[in-house]
Simulated assay, not measured.
Amino acid sequence: MPQQASMAFALPGGETSKPSRKRPIDLVHLTRETFGNRALETEILSLFSRQISGIVNRLSQANADERVRLAKSLKGSARAVGAFRVADLAESIERSPGNTKLLSELHPEIDDVRDYIAAITR
Rank of each mutant, 00 (worst) to 15 (best):
P108I: 11
L40I: 14
K18N: 08
S20N: 14
K72R: 12
P108A: 11
A8S: 12
N63E: 14
S73Q: 15
K101C: 04
E66M: 15
L74Q: 05
L47I: 07
G14M: 00
P19N: 11
A118H: 04
A90V: 03
G82P: 02
A71V: 13
N57F: 05
A39Y: 06
T34L: 03
D88A: 13
N99G: 05
F84D: 05
A39S: 12
R58K: 13
H107R: 14
V56P: 04
K72D: 09
D111H: 08
T42Y: 00
R114K: 15
L106D: 03
L102S: 01
R58Q: 14
L103F: 02
E91M: 05
N57T: 15
E109Q: 12
E66P: 01
A62C: 10
Q51S: 10
E91R: 14
E15N: 10
V56Q: 12
V56L: 15
L30E: 02
L47C: 04
K72T: 14
H107E: 08
I25A: 03
E109N: 09
R122L: 08
R21C: 06
L103H: 05
E94N: 00
H107L: 08
L45V: 01
V68E: 12
F48S: 08
L47M: 09
E43D: 06
S49I: 07
E15Q: 13
L102A: 06
R114G: 11
P97V: 02
Q3D: 13
K22F: 09
S6E: 08
M7I: 14
D115S: 14
R38E: 03
V86E: 13
T100G: 13
E94V: 04
L11C: 05
S6Q: 02
R79W: 07
A80G: 08
N99I: 01
G98L: 11
R23E: 10
L89M: 05
F48P: 04
G14S: 00
F48Q: 04
K75P: 03
F9C: 05
N57E: 14
L103R: 05
V28E: 02
G98S: 09
E105C: 10
T31W: 03
M1Y: 07
G36Q: 00
L45Q: 07
L47H: 05
S17C: 12
F9R: 11
A64R: 07
V113C: 15
S20F: 09
S96Q: 13
F48Y: 15
S92C: 02
M1I: 06
V86M: 15
E41Q: 11
I117E: 02
P2W: 04
L59K: 03
S104E: 12
K75W: 13
N99W: 03
V81W: 05
S53V: 09
L40K: 12
A78G: 02
Q4R: 13
K72C: 01
D88F: 04
A78E: 03
T121M: 03
L102F: 11
A87K: 07
P2M: 04
N57A: 15
E43Y: 00
V113S: 13
D112L: 08
S46R: 14
S92Q: 09
F84R: 09
H29L: 08
